[in-house]
Nucleic acid binder design. Structure first.
Length: 723
DNA sequence: CGAGTGGTATGTCCAGGACT
DNA sequence: AGTCCTGGACATACCACTCG
C-alpha cells in the first residue's frame, strides 16, 4: 500500500497464473496464514501472498493480495523499517512456514533450505527464464506476462538467494528460485504450458559457465520491477552451434561474455557486450550499463578496449593457456574497480573533530562530607564507599570499576571513554595524558597501570568493559599485559577507526540507505557493507533521505530517529562551579557499526601490544564481506533505540502501574514547580510525566502482542538465527 | 518568516538490587 | 567485595508545530 493509500495491484491474473506453477506454500504470522504466490525478485516488496485472515476472506480477493511487507504490516499493524533490507529481514524472520517434519521455520530459513535443495551454488551458470506478470509487451499471451531470459551468476548461501543477470540488459536481481516463476530451459515455455521448474530436468543448452566472481558486476536489486525489468522481451537465446560439450569447451575458452571488438562479434554466453572503439570514444545507448557509462573516462575506455581486445583475441585464438586470459581478466577487474570508484558518490566529509578535552574541573562540586564527584562518569557509591565509574555507551550503561581515589576513577573513565567513544569523548584530563607511556607519565604516577589493558578489555564487546584494578589500581591480572606499554597504539588505532568512520561516514545516511543494497556480494573491499550500510542504514535510493514522518504510526518497526548532529556545534563548556549535566552536544552521533570499528581498532591496539596478530576480520563482517546479520542488527538497533523510549515508557508505566499511577499528583507537582522555579524544562517534564505514564500504560497493553512478536524476533537474533 | 513552545530522544548521575 | 544491571530523575539537543 503506498502512502497515498492507493494499492498498486500487479497483473493479478498473470500473477496468479505464475503462482499456480509453484508448490502451495502457506506462510504464517501470529496465526494468520497466507498462500505464498512468489515473485520474480526476493524482495519482500515483490513477493506476494494471498492473505487468509477473516477480514481479507470476506472482501474482494484483491484485498488479500499483499506483498510480504504488506502482509506483515497488515497482521502486526506495525510499519516495517523504511530500509528495504531491514524490511526483508523482518519479513523473512517473522513469517513462518511449515517445513519438513512439520517443523515451523522462518521464511528465510525455508528459502535457504529450498535453495540448497534446488542446487544452491551448483546452479550458478545456469540459464533460467523469469516470468514478469506485469510486462505485457511482446508477451506470447496478451496480459499474461512476459518471459525474460537470464542466467544465474551467483548464490548467497546465507540468504538462499540467487543472483540473476538478465540477458537483455544485464540487470542483476536477487531471487528466491524456489518461489520464483522461473523456467529452466533453452527457450521460454510455450504459451499454455507450465514451465519446467526442475533444473535437473532442463536441457543441456541451459547449462552455462559460471561467471568469475571477480568480474561479475554485482548490482543491487532494490529497484522495482518496472524500473529494472528488461524493457523488451527477447527471443530465443542465441543458437549455439555444436553439441553441449562443444559449447562448454568454447564457453570456457571465451570466458564470460560475447564481445564485439571493432564491430566483430565474438561468441560467448549470456549477454552481449557490444563495445568498439567508436563506442568507447562516445558511449552510446548500446554500451553496457556496467562499462559504457559516460563517466568512464577516456583513459578508462582505452584500458577497457585493450582489455576487451585482449580477451577477445584470446577467445578467437586456438585456445591458448588460461594465463593468456588472466591479464585481460585482471584488467577488466581493475577497470571495474576504478569505474565503481569513479561512479560512486563522492566521499566528502569534514575532518574529524579533534578530541574534546575538558580540563580537570577547577572547582570541586563538593568537598567534605558530600561525596559528589568532581569528574564526569564518576559517582560515589555509598554502599562500597568507593568511587564508581560508569559510562553510557552503545545504548546502555557500563561499569568500569570502583576506586578509592577519585582521580583514579576519573582517569579510568577517560580511558573507557576513549575506547568507547573515540576522539570525540569528553575527558576529565587532557588526552595527552593517555598518550604517554604509563610508566613514565603522570598517569603512571597515579598508580594506574591498567590503562592499556583496560582499554582493550573494555573493547572486547562483552559487557565487562574495562576491568580496572581495585581501588589500589593494580594491573588487571586477567589481562596479563604490561602496564609499561604506552597508550599511543590505542589512540593510533582510534585514529584509524576515525578514518574508517570517515570512510564509512560518507555514506552515513545513504549507507543506511542505498548502499545497503549496494552491498556487493563478495565485495571484499573490507570497508564492508557496514550494517550501516545495511545497518544503521535504512532508506533506499541513494543519497536522498526520506522525509521525516510527521508521526510514527507505531514504535515497533519504525526506524530510529537519527539526529543529524550539527557538526559545527561545539560542546558547551563546563559551567563554573560544577560539571555540566545533561547530554553534551555531540558533533556526530557515531553509528553503531562505526563504534564497532572503534572497538575493533582498540582491540587491535591492545593485541598489538601483546604481539598478537591483528584480527583478520572486522567485527560483524563476514568472510565474504557481508555484515553478519546486518539487517537483523539494524532492525534490532532501530527497535532498540526507539525501545529506549518506548520500552522506557512501558517500563515506567509498569513501574507506576502498581500505585495506580500518580498522573494527577504529578501534574500538581508540575504546577508547583512552575510556580516556584519557572524553569521551563522542569515544568514541562513534570506536566508531561503523568501523561507519559498513562500513554505508556496504554501502549503496554496495545503493544503486548507486538512485544511478543518482537521478543521472539530478538531472541532468534540472539540465538544466531539470522533470519 | 522567525521566535516560542511542545514532544521526543538521548546522555548523565545516582541509588540500589542481584549475582558471583 | 566487586561486578553488573536497572530505574528514576534530570538535563539538553533536535525537530515539528504554532502563532504573531
Amino acid at each position: 500500500m503506498d502512502e497515498e493509500g492507493v494499492k498498486q495491484v500487479p497483473n493479478e491474473t498473470a500473477l496468479r497464473l505464475a503462482a499456480s506453477w509453484l508448490p502451495s506454500i502457506e506462510v504464517d504470522l501470529d496465526g494468520i496464514t497466507a498462500t505464498l504466490l512468489g515473485g520474480h525478485t526476493s524482495e519482500s516488496s515483490n513477493l506476494y501472498v494471498q492473505c487468509h485472515c477473516p477480514l481479507c476472506e470476506t472482501r474482494a480477493p484483491t484485498a488479500g493480495l499483499n506483498t510480504l511487507e504488506e502482509q506483515v504490516e497488515h497482521v502486526t499493524g506495525e510499519e516495517l523499517p523504511e530500509s528495504p533490507e531491514q524490511a526483508d529481514a523482518v519479513c523473512r524472520t517473522v513469517l513462518k512456514i511449515r517445513g519438513p517434519e512439520d517443523r515451523m521455520m522462518s521464511l528465510g530459513a525455508f528459502m535457504r533450505q529450498r535453495a540448497e535443495a534446488l542446487g544452491g551454488a551448483d546452479l550458478v551458470g545456469r540459464a533460467v527464464w523469469m516470468h514478469w506478470p506485469d510486462d505485457a509487451e511482446g508477451a506470447a499471451t496478451p496480459g499474461m506476462g512476459t518471459w525474460y531470459p537470464a542466467h544465474i551468476v551467483s548464490y548467497s548461501p546465507r540468504t538462499g538467494e540467487h543472483l540473476l543477470q538478465y540477458q537483455e540488459d544485464g540487470v542483476q536481481l536477487r531471487v528466491f528460485l524456489a518461489v520464483a516463476p522461473c523456467h529452466y530451459g533453452a527457450t521460454a515455455p510455450p504459451p499454455g504450458t507450465p514451465p519446467n521448474r526442475d533444473p535437473a530436468a532442463a536441457d543441456n543448452a541451459s547449462v552455462l559457465i559460471p561467471l568469475e566472481p571477480d568480474t561479475v558486476p554485482q548490482q543491487r536489486s532494490d529497484q522495482g520491477p518496472s524500473s529494472h525489468a528488461p524493457k523488451r522481451p527477447v527471443g530465443v537465446p542465441d543458437a549455439r552451434a555444436g553439441s553441449a560439450s562443444d559449447q562448454l569447451k568454447r564457453q570456457r575458452r571465451v570466458g564470460r561474455a560475447d564481445i564485439a571488438v571493432g564491430g566483430q562479434q565474438h561468441p560467448g554466453y549470456a549477454g552481449t557486450l557490444t563495445l568498439d572503439s567508436t563506442t568507447l570514444a562516445a558511449p552510446s545507448a548500446q554500451a553496457s550499463p556496467e562499462f559504457g557509462e559516460p563517466s568512464l573516462g577516456a583513459t578508462g575506455r582505452s584500458e577497457l578496449l585493450a582489455a576487451l581486445t585482449s580477451q577477445a583475441a584470446f577467445a578467437q585464438g586456438p585456445g591458448g593457456p588460461d594465463a593468456a586470459a588472466a591479464p585481460a581478466s585482471e584488467a577488466l577487474y581493475k577497470l571495474q574497480q576504478a569505474h565503481a570508484a569513479a561512479t560512486a558518490p563522492p566521499r566528502i566529509r569534514a575532518p574529524a573533530p579533534p578530541p574534546v578535552i575538558i580540563p580537570a574541573p577547577v572547582v570541586a562540586a563538593s568537598d567534605g562530607g558530600a561525596k559528589t564527584s568532581r569528574f564526569r562518569g564518576v559517582s560515589w557509591n555509598k554502599r562500597t564507599l568507593k568511587w564508581q565509574v560508569t559510562l553510557y555507551a552503545r545504548g546502555r550503561y557500563r561499569y568500569f570499576g570502583s576506586y578509592t581515589d577519585q582521580d583514579e576513577a576519573a582517569r579510568a573513565y577517560d580511558r573507557a571513554a576513549l575506547v568507547w567513544k573515540g576522539p570525540s569523548a569528553v575527558l576529565n584530563f587532557p588526552a595527552s595524558d593517555y598518550t604517554k607511556p604509563i610508566g613514565a607519565a603522570g598517569v603512571a604516577a597515579a598508580g594506574n597501570g591498567d590503562g592499556g589493558s583496560d582499554a582493550g578489555e573494555g573493547a572486547d564487546g562483552a559487557d565487562g568493559g574495562v576491568t580496572p584494578g581495585t581501588g589500589a589500581a593494580q594491573p588487571s591480572p586477567a589481562s596479563g599485559r604490561s602496564s609499561g606499554t604506552g597508550q599511543a597504539p590505542l589512540l593510533g588505532a582510534l585514529a584509524a577507526a576515525v578514518a574508517a568512520e570517515e570512510a564509512a561516514e560518507s555514506g552515513d545516511d545513504d549507507d543506511m540507505s542505498g548502499d545497503e543494497d549496494g552491498v556487493q556480494y563478495g565485495d571484499g573491499s573490507g570497508r564492508g557493507a557496514s550494517p550501516g550500510d545495511t545497518r544503521a542504514g535504512p532508506y533506499g535510493g541513494g543519497a536522498l533521505r526520506r522525509p521525516r514522518k510527521k508521526k510514527a504510526a507505531s514504535k515497533l518497526f519504525t526506524r530510529k530517529k537519527i539526529h543529524k548532529g550539527d557538526g559545527a556545534s561545539a560542546p558547551l563548556p563546563t559551567p563554573p562551579g560544577g560539571r555540566r549535566r545533561g547530554r553534551p552536544p555531540k558533533p556526530r552521533p557515531p553509528p553503531e557499526e562505526l563504534e564497532a570499528l572503534m572497538i575493533q581498532a582498540a582491540e587491535a591496539a591492545v593485541a598489538a601490544q601483546d604481539g598478537a596478530p591483528l584480527p583478520s576480520e572486522l567485527p560483524g563482517i563476514g568472510p565474504d564481506g557481508e555484515p553478519i546479520l546486518p539487517s537483523m542488527r539494524a532492525a534490532m538497533a532501530a527497535a532498540g533505540q526507539e525501545g529506549s523510549g518506548a520500552d522506557g515508557d512501558r517500563d515506567s508505566a509498569m513501574a507506576g502501574s502498581g500505585a495506580g499511577d500518580g498522573g494527577e499528583s504529578d501534574t500538581a507537582v508540575a504546577a508547583d514547580a512552575g510556580a516556584d522555579t519557572g524553569r521551563r524544562s522542569s515544568r514541562r517534564a513534570a506536566a508531561n510525566k503523568g501523561m507519559r505514564k498513562m500513554a505508556a500504560a496504554m501502549a503496554s497493553v496495545v503493544n503486548a502482542r507486538r512485544d511478543g512478536l518482537w521478543a521472539r524476533l530478538m531472541q532468534r537474533a540472539e540465538d544466531g538465527e539470522d533470519m
